[in-house]
């Protein structure tokens, strides 16, 4: 991947991600998230993972974001004052999150995983739908079946908690 392209995209992604956290209006936060997710999709494209890029756009930037926006509009959230939590707690949470991020970067760097495996040649047929399907129906067949059960449970739970008749 061209370093210049990477730096440009990475900067834009970080700016969009900051927008999610810093925007005062929830709608703007959500829209910044759409932008961030699109840039993430571009990264997948640059890594030769076209299918994952497409899924990223369809599932996250599409379906999930529509849900977010829908909920925000449904609840009619206005610009909320920033002092949601006490300043001390916010500072503590921010510090912990930053430390966590730094630790992750440090460990990932030290592990050498970024140099050793990231730059390897792309195997033949990588990211083809056929290969993903093969994995799904062989190695991860049980997980695949179990997911259907998980979705069933989630549907029942949602209905139980949301249906109108109380008694």
């Amino acid at each position: 991947m061209n370093t210049g392209v990477f730096v440009l995209l990475a900067t834009l992604l970080v700016v969009a991600a900051l927008g999610v956290v810093l925007a005062r209006s929830p709608i703007r936060s959500a829209l910044s998230l759409v932008v961030a997710l699109f840039f993430l999709a571009v990264f997948f494209l640059l890594l030769d993972a076209q299918l994952i890029a497409a899924l990223q756009v369809i599932v996250y930037a599409g379906a999930i974001m529509v849900l977010f926006l829908f909920v925000i509009m449904l609840l009619n959230l206005q610009e909320h004052p920033a002092e949601m939590a006490r300043a001390g707690l916010r500072f503590l949470a921010g510090t912990l999150a930053s430390l966590f991020l730094l630790a992750t970067i440090y460990f990932t760097n030290r592990s050498g995983i970024s140099n050793a495996q990231g730059m390897g040649a792309i195997p033949d047929g990588f990211d083809s739908t056929a290969q993903i399907a093969e994995r799904l129906f062989t190695q991860h067949l049980f997980a695949f079946e179990l997911t259907s059960l998980l979705l069933l449970v989630a549907i029942i739970s949602a209905v139980v908690l949301a249906k109108k008749k109380l008694a």
């Binding site: 997980a143 179990l146 998980l150 449970v153 739970s157």
Partner: peptide, 12 residues
């Protein structure tokens, strides 16, 4: 996935 099946039912 097992954890999620268990937990989502427990949340509800």
């Amino acid at each position: 996935l097992g954890l999620e099946v268990m937990s989502i039912a427990a949340y509800a």
